[in-house]
Amino acid sequence: MEDLIRRYAQLIIQSQLKLRPGDSVSINTEAAIMGFARYLAKEATMVTGQTVTIVETNHGKVIEAIPIEPEQQEIFRPPVQAVVMCHLFDLDASPYLQDLDLGKAVEDVGLLARFGHLSEPVFLDRRIAVAWANVPYPGNQWAANVLGRNASEEETWLLFGALFRLDSDWASSFWDEQANLLEYRKQRLNALGRVDIKLIGDGWECRGSSADDTQWAGGRQMLKNGRIFSPMLPMQSIHVALDATSTQGTLRSSRPFYVLGKEVIGATFTIRDGKVTHFEAEQGKEALAAFFSIDEGAARVAELSLADNDTIESRYLGRSVHAHFAKEMTTTLVLGGFSLDTLKTQQTEDDIVQSKLNQSLVRLEIPVGDDHLSVVLTKKDGEELEVVTEGVHRN
């Protein structure tokens, strides 16, 4: 297990944040995983030669800032070049399955955040200008929810290590190659311009259109200064915002997913003019109803996320128990708020309205990918391009 922890820290440093000499790193964490935060900070100082600051928080409130000093004396340290941010979070801090009053749960913003349902706030004048990463830390409760049984610490780290490819010292190379693959897919799809999108599953079909003046996003990001970084791992998906009024048809969830602490199984949806007008579920229908009651946009289609259905993530994550992994395990249709990284030139609220982007306080990923899924794009000139066949992206 110690070796996996060492490799995980190096993966964050080398592949996610791509730390350089002179980087000033800030690590935000809660007390439960302070041990790993200190270890990561010490490893980071060996690369940056600069002080790394650990910011301990409790439910979002800052408790204290802890400086971790490098071995070099201050006179020998490189000058500060850039600010880098890292948010560590404990996967066991998620409430997972809960027996809650759903009526009260939908009114508690803090609880919605813990469930991973909150959308990104739409701040158009505040784009990220620093490299950053959201970094999960595994726990037995998370593993038990994924595996459907109690899990030992060793089993937890074996599962987590498989998802992050920590079985060798080549994990950074693997994720760098994966970033290149996703970059190629984004460039290829963005070159098509605005497209109509048809999803065909086993006994269902729905259609929609990408939103005006938006782009396929996901995977690796680049700052204006050319610096690249990966906001999250694992990364398998790319996503596009949909015209909030365009989606029509039916769909069926391909695997269980969690809503407000309830497991939803066998969900089906009818969508008209971009909004869910009817839904059923073998289990968890009351949770879906509560979610859709939060605001008008909660039941409206916001996004399509494409991820292959033959990956380790798809095989190991049989159910979507944590929002961090939801889009990476298979193709999903997203309800609620859109992702800001899909924007291109929008500067005002009027621009958002004109692009027909869906805004909601919350969002929900509905898994639809399986071995039967096909995704067909139609360009303005009528040319069709099948980008997903039998659940797998056609590169």
Rank of each mutant, 00 (worst) to 15 (best):
S15Q: 11
K18S: 15
D23H: 12
N28E: 14
F36C: 08
R38D: 13
L40S: 05
G49W: 04
I54Q: 04
E64L: 06
A65C: 13
I68V: 15
P70W: 05
Q73N: 04
I75V: 12
I75W: 07
P78L: 13
P79H: 06
V84K: 13
L91K: 03
D99H: 14
L100T: 11
G110V: 07
L118Q: 03
A129T: 13
A131E: 07
A143P: 01
N145Y: 14
W170D: 11
Q178F: 07
L182Q: 05
I197P: 02
G201V: 01
S210C: 11
T214A: 01
W216V: 12
V240G: 00
V240F: 03
S246I: 00
R255M: 13
F257R: 00
F257Y: 10
V259F: 02
I265C: 08
R272E: 15
T277K: 00
F279K: 04
F292A: 09
D295A: 04
E303F: 00
E303A: 00
L304A: 06
L304Y: 05
L306Q: 04
D310K: 15
V321P: 01
F325Q: 09
E328P: 02
M329L: 14
L335D: 06
G336M: 07
F338W: 00
L340W: 02
T342V: 09
K344L: 13
T345H: 10
Q346T: 00
D351A: 00
Q354S: 08
S355E: 02
Q359N: 04
D371P: 05
H372K: 14
S374N: 12
S374W: 10
V375Y: 07
T378K: 12
D381H: 04
L385Q: 15
